[in-house]
Simulated scan of single mutants.
Amino acid sequence: MSEANNNVSAPAKKKVYWVPLESSPDAMNKVIYSMGVGSSVGFSDVWGLDEELLSMIPQPVHALVFLFPPSDKLEEEKKKIAASSDNKVSPNVWFMRQTIGNACGTMAIFHALGNNQETLPISGDIARFFAKVNALSPGDKAAELEKDSAMAASHKVGAAEGQTTAPSADAKVKHHYSAFAIVDGDLYELDGGMPGPINLGPATDVLKAGARAIKSRISHFNDTSVEFSVIALGPSQSD
């Protein structure tokens, strides 16, 4: 019998893409409510990072979501920090790698929710997903997300909510998302494109500490025309 077929390679796995999520509290709230998060919490815009404007945000804030343009310099710096032995990460940090194309917005939502599971009204599909993946590695969490039709459907609900026409799923997007949350007394930046979470040091107030960290991130950009946005997860504004 010929052994020629023994050298045939398995077909390459096709990359999964989702339609990019608009940086909009309405879109993000559509996602989390579809997942099963209770309506007593929700996302709201952060209009500025100065103390006076931060005081207008519904509190307590559980996490921040930051939208920013790609920067090779910033990305390399973050990768170096994330991989450093000096970057001490609590085992209680919930982190998932991003393997789905254009899903960074919903990835930031997962990081915001995943690191606040004990304090948020979580049930339904998102509670089921967390129960399934909480003990898995960041890569295995991502693999489970790729197979989860309910999570994909919740993302799709939010992606259809944007005020602008949604691009195709495999379109090249111009911005990226990360999330900020406090775990075991330290502030973390959670970016699924990084090797792991980035410990930004001790903190007690995610809104104030996250705002300082985001200001530091923004300082990497010299172009004043560059657009950023910050969205906070806290009490629902409808309550």
Rank of each mutant, 00 (worst) to 15 (best):
I57P: 02
Y188E: 10
V89M: 01
S34H: 11
A12V: 13
L49P: 01
R97T: 12
P25N: 04
I81N: 02
G42E: 07
F110P: 02
F43D: 12
L145A: 15
G101P: 07
K208I: 03
L200Y: 06
P167I: 02
L67E: 14
H111Y: 03
V133Y: 00
K15W: 00
S34C: 12
K13Y: 07
N7H: 08
A152P: 04
Q59N: 06
I198H: 06
S55M: 09
V19C: 08
D170W: 02
A181G: 01
V230N: 01
A166H: 01
P11M: 02
V8A: 10
I57W: 06
K14G: 06
F110L: 14
G185R: 09
V206Q: 03
S40T: 15
M56W: 01
D170N: 11
F221W: 10
D140R: 15
P197F: 10
S219T: 12
I231K: 04
N199S: 15
S225M: 10
N199D: 12
M96S: 13
E52K: 04
H62T: 09
E75P: 00
N134K: 15
D50E: 15
G105I: 02
D223K: 04
H176A: 07
G193W: 06
G105Q: 03
M96A: 13
G158F: 04
G196L: 14
K80I: 06
A4V: 07
K14L: 11
G38S: 08
E146M: 15
G48R: 00
L21P: 00
E76A: 12
V93R: 00
V37P: 02
D72Y: 10
L207R: 09
S238K: 14
V157R: 05
P91W: 01
P60L: 02
L207N: 13
